[in-house]
């Protein structure tokens, strides 16, 4: 009828950030502010980016992340305590085409599962390990872990961790980087948006090292346990940036891709 356009054209809105497809719709059961949620999201985003959701098989650890099979929309195995790398070895050898990753905490990987992670890394198994380090046993009520910082107060070290009595924090990534079978070893942090994006870049390389059959990939991510640290989520992330990074320096410790390409 009339040629005059009276209505402005609707602005096309684009959804640029949403829940990744590899996460189920179920809400996380973690405490408010817990770093597990961020790390779950990063893993799911990378599964989507590499397009391996249909052949991804995850290994859940024992600890707070034991319920990760509820949250990831891919195959999952709930492994015996600490034995996720051993289970992953079997799965990967039976299904060489599958994308196999384990998601473990520090009580699982650095304490009871020390033997399994060392030998899986030394054999150079084609698996990816996501190691979440919060320096404490979160699920069982805040006991001292192998990664607890010196003089840090926990329920089983009420006067602070005594290095003469209980040793110092174990630096797993540095130890594993010395093994020949390891293709990528790095440590990131989930304390700030900047560190989260860096951690995602590390995890991407660890995923690539499996997909391109370079070898074992491990990424350690410092996370907060604000409930057992008796801090607010903001204070807990500040504690990571100020105290934890002194004992656990961030960075790449081994990288097979470094010589060929910068990115």
């Amino acid at each position: 009828m009339s040629d005059v356009k009276t209505i402005a054209e609707p602005v096309q809105e684009k959804l640029v950030f949403d829940r990744p497809k590899s996460l189920t719709k179920r809400g996380f059961t973690y405490c408010p502010g817990c770093g597990h949620g961020v790390i779950h999201r990063l893993v799911a985003e990378l599964i989507d980016e590499f397009g391996v959701q249909d052949r991804a098989i995850g290994m859940a650890s024992v600890g707070c992340s034991v319920f990760s099979y509820w949250f990831f929309d891919c195959d999952f195995i709930s492994c015996a305590h600490g034995r996720a790398p051993a289970t992953a070895t079997g799965v990967k050898r039976a299904h060489p085409d599958a994308f196999v990753f384990s998601y473990q905490g520090d009580g699982d990987l650095a304490s009871i599962g020390m033997a399994e992670i060392m030998h899986a890394a030394n054999r150079g198994e084609q698996i990816t390990v996501i190691f979440v380090n919060n320096a404490i046993y979160g699920m069982t009520g805040g006991q001292m872990a192998p990664t607890t910082l010196e003089n840090m107060v926990t329920t089983t070290s009420p006067l602070g961790r005594d290095p003469i009595l209980a040793g110092g924090p174990i630096r797993m990534v540095e130890i594993l980087a010395n093994l020949d079978g390891v293709a990528f070893a790095a440590r990131g942090s989930s304390s700030s948006p900047r560190n989260i994006l860096k951690a995602k870049a590390y995890m991407k390389k660890a995923f690539r090292s499996q997909i391109e059959k370079k070898g074992f990939g491990i990424v350690e991510i410092l996370s907060n346990c604000n409930t057992n640290w008796r801090k607010t989520p903001q204070e807990a992330n500040k504690f990571i940036d100020e105290e934890m990074v002194k004992a656990f320096p961030l960075g790449v410790y081994k990288d097979v891709f470094a010589d060929k390409s910068k990115k």
Partner: peptide, 19 residues
């Protein structure tokens, strides 16, 4: 500005960003 910093730090994926 749609910088997504709030969404990146959110542990429960409770923020959607539109641009």
């Amino acid at each position: 500005t749609g910088c997504m910093l709030c969404a990146i730090i959110c542990p429960d994926v409770a923020i959607r960003v539109y641009k």
